[in-house]
Design a protein around this nucleic acid. Structure first.
Length: 440
RNA sequence: CGGGGCGUAGCGCAGUCUGGUAGCGCAUCUGCUUUGGGAGCAGAGGGUCGCAGGUUCAAAUCCUGCCGCCCCGACCA
């Protein structure tokens, strides 16, 4: 992409409404624009990151056996009257009337709708287990939206819903998501730690929040240091191996880990002093087993095999991709701007033409741009007629992992300079070597 | 929803107390000079001063009402 033909409205100064670093950097980097409190438009650069995140989330959901679909944002109120949540949900639910005065709502979540879809088609336990998910915009009319995308009213959520014939099956479905989440966050370049959350109606430990550590995170978390070095399950993990998955989950829940709400200072103090980690974190995922809470009132039942019909056991599993955009920035930035993990970077590399208009420099940039593009490298070519300093600052701000600086000084020796955004290291090399390095 | 604050050019702000030609920096446009870490000079364009009433010869400024946004708290994926 040529910057001169792109839409990247970089701000030199920080809009005053932005308090936390991810919000500031997203606005400055031209990633998003606020349209109302807690409601944002994604600009092209922000969308690229969001889509990278979605792709990874999707791959790991699919790998675990979940099946993608897409439910609407607008839902009929009657569905929620069946579960009793239409009255219970309160003012966080955005309620709408259509032209026929029918009660509608902008979905804050989809348990009711997925249960309705399930019961319409599935009759037999033989069709289970089933896990359906979608990635769709949600709306929760928070009293006080804040922190940019971290706590918006409209947000993108991946929500999966599992259906099993009994609790044992549901636990396995839960474990699949647990492992898929470990893999997802690791691939996003994040250290995630599962922390016990409020238990479901059946009791037990079957609700976990996935917290990523970030110095500027919103909440205090406490955990055993060894979590930071736990190996994340590989891509070859067998999701059908019930005992194997349980073993992974057991390991990842064996040590102390709690958010401030569930923190038990006395138990935490029992850990060896050098193993106590007290840090700040951001919740980026939440998984939940809730049994027959919806299947029973909404009559989502299957033939159990013994002549009877039984309500299915369900769980739901959320990840917030739009929040993750902000969370990744909170976890990965410096004074100059964003430092994207390579897996989610909007572009892999940037070419900085340090002397626009100089024939040799222009030609070298054009050639490198063509060569990188031909190799499938996502590259942003800064071909704007502005000073080198401005290009350095802009590249650092938007956080592209690799910068290739091309100018007359280096070209005199047949060299360009490749800079790694993450650590600032630079290396002089030939354009051919740069091409090789960046297209690996 | 309680408490606090802010709405003046695309962004950041001054001007409001004490009413009297709407300003500054950055950005944008033109020209010249510059060109390896956010250049310099000269010039230009751009504003219903959040909205609606009211007071006044005169309102960004005073009064009343409303709207929007931000921060702290309570609450939350």
């Amino acid at each position: 992409m040529r910057l001169s033909r792109y839409f990247l409205p970089i701000l030199r100064e920080t809009p005053k409404e932005a308090e936390i670093v991810s919000h500031r950097l997203m606005l400055r980097a031209g990633m998003m624009r606020q349209e109302a409190a807690g409601i944002y438009a994604f600009l092209p650069l922000g969308l690229r990151v969001l889509q990278k995140i979605n792709a990874i989330v999707r791959e790991e959901q699919n790998r675990s056996g979940a099946i993608e679909m897409l439910m609407p944002t607008i839902q009929p109120a009657d569905l929620w009257r069946e579960s009793g949540r239409y009255e219970a949900y309160g003012k966080e639910m955005l309620r709408i009337k259509d032209r026929h005065e029918r009660d509608m709502l902008f979905g804050p979540t989809n348990e009711e709708m997925i249960t309705e879809i399930f019961r319409a088609y599935v009759r037999s336990y033989k069709d289970l287990p089933l896990n359906l998910y979608h990635i769709q915009w949600k709306f929760r009319d928070e009293v006080r939206p804040r922190f940019g995308l971290m706590r918006g009213r409209e947000f993108l959520m991946k929500d999966a819903y599992s259906f099993d014939r009994d609790q044992a099956g549901a636990v396995h479905s839960y474990n699949k998501m647990f492992v898929a989440y470990l893999r997802t966050f690791a691939r996003l370049g994040l250290k995630s730690i599962p922390m016990r959350a409020e238990s479901g109606p059946i009791g037990g430990n079957l609700s976990h929040e996935f917290i990523i550590l970030a110095d500027t995170g919103e909440s205090e978390v406490y955990c055993h240091k060894d979590y930071l070095d736990f190996a994340v399950p590989g891509a070859d993990v067998n999701f059908d191996n019930i005992a194997g998955l349980q073993g992974i989950v057991d390991k990842w829940t064996s040590l102390y880990a709690a958010t401030s709400e569930k923190h038990d200072a006395a138990n935490f103090a029992k850990l060896p002093a050098d193993k106590q980690v007290s840090a700040r974190g951001i919740e980026v995922g939440h998984i939940f087993y809730f049994g027959t809470k919806y299947s029973e009132p909404m009559k989502a039942v299957v033939a159990a095999g013994d002549g009877s019909e039984k309500p299915v056991h369900m769980g739901s599993y959320g990840i917030g991709p739009s929040r993750l955009v902000a969370a990744i920035i909170e976890a990965s930035h410096d004074e100059a701007g964003i430092i994207w993990p390579e897996a989610v970077a909007p572009f892999h590399a940037a070419i900085l033409n340090l002397k626009q208009g100089d024939a040799a420099t222009d030609a070298a940039c054009e050639q490198l741009y063509r060569d990188l593009s031909a190799k499938g490298v996502e590259v942003l070519y800064n071909d704007i007629d502005e000073r080198a300093g401005a290009k350095f600052a802009a590249s650092d701000l938007i956080g592209v992992p690799w910068q290739v600086m091309v100018g007359p000084r280096g070209l005199a020796d047949g060299k360009v300079e490749v800079k790694k955004r993450a650590d600032g290291s630079r290396e002089l090399m030939s354009p051919a070597a740069a091409l090789d390095r960046l297209s690996r």
